[in-house]
Design a binder for these strands. Structure first.
Length: 288
DNA sequence: ATGACTTGAGTTTCAAGA
């Protein structure tokens, strides 16, 4: 198989995002798309987009609910062995639609929407940690060629938030959350966007309020985590900021990763262009 | 400025997001 383009996008309601999502599909031509926060029951998803996606050659695996959450995988390189939900995962209190997996073009693909956590040490925070532990177990028990894509609701490092001081006391940056993410990665997953842009300021989410996107005050919480055999095939890994601009965007931007065909072809390390570190502004985080 | 915006349900204002 030739090049495969994998993308992940928290669309914040696929129904509201249709006018942005379909043109984006046609423009970027991803072969595998992981969606989060579809906010739509499965039957409604199919009624809304089934024909549009089939006409573009995509098979679809959806796992949604009526109001919140909801994940999906679209693929035009095969979609086999679909598993919805997270085996032995926790609920809040019931299981939520936050994970779906399928084998696409020989790679086990997981589309995940990790619980937000709400406030450190809250019930929801402990749910988030338990959910991440269950995800780690599923990935550890799965095949070697794997990619975990989605909104992990954790900034892996301080460099992944616009101002670490603004997040003190908040979720997404706490030690236990980062430890849980590290435990997931310890199954052998590489953060391919950070690998590609080791010193760049790269965000995937910007609050709708207060011109945060315009000022580039965001976080990097949408990740593509790839096992070594997949990571070795990465030829491009970037955040599609264009999709966050203009009218009616999601508050998250897509992450796009291109994989070369599996290979002997050693083209050497991908070296990012030199870049000067940008100064950080001290800005107060919008509060709810 | 304990604010700012956007969603879904469902009826009018709340819960949730991060």
């Amino acid at each position: 198989m030739g090049r495969v383009r994998v993308a992940t996008w928290n669309v914040n309601s696929v129904k509201q995002r249709v006018p942005r999502f379909l043109p984006w599909l046609d423009q970027r031509q991803p072969d595998v798309v992981c969606l989060q926060e579809t906010k739509l029951a499965d039957e409604a998803f199919t009624a809304l987009l089934g024909d549009e996606l089939a006409g573009r050659g995509y098979e679809v695996a959806v796992h949604g609910e009526a109001r919140w959450n909801g994940v999906a995988i679209l693929s035009r390189v095969g979609l086999d062995d679909v598993v919805t939900g997270l085996a032995d995962g926790p609920g809040f209190p019931e299981p939520e639609a936050r994970a779906v997996a399928a084998t696409c073009g020989g790679v086990r693909v997981h589309s995940v929407y990790v619980p937000n956590g709400r406030a450190p040490d809250s019930d929801h925070y402990h749910y988030k940690l338990a959910w991440l532990a269950a995800l780690r177990d599923v990935v550890a028990a799965g095949p070697e060629g794997v990619v975990v894509c989605g909104d992990v609701n954790i900034a892996p490092a301080d460099a992944d938030v616009f101002d670490p001081a603004a997040y003190v006391g908040h979720t997404h940056v706490t030690g236990p959350e980062r430890d849980a993410l590290a435990a997931l990665q310890a199954t052998g997953l590489r953060d391919v966007v950070r690998d590609r842009w080791p010193t760049e300021r790269v965000f995937t989410y910007w609050d709708y309020r207060a011109g945060m996107f315009h000022q580039d005050l965001g976080m990097r919480i949408d990740l593509v985590l790839a096992s070594d055999p997949v990571a070795a095939r990465v030829r491009a890994a970037w955040v599609d900021r264009h999709a966050r601009k203009g009218t009616g965007p999601s508050d998250h931007a897509p992450v796009i990763v291109d994989l070369d065909e599996a290979p002997d072809g050693d083209i050497g390390p991908v070296v990012p262009p030199p870049s000067a570190p940008r100064t950080r502004k001290s800005v107060k985080l919008p509060q709810s």
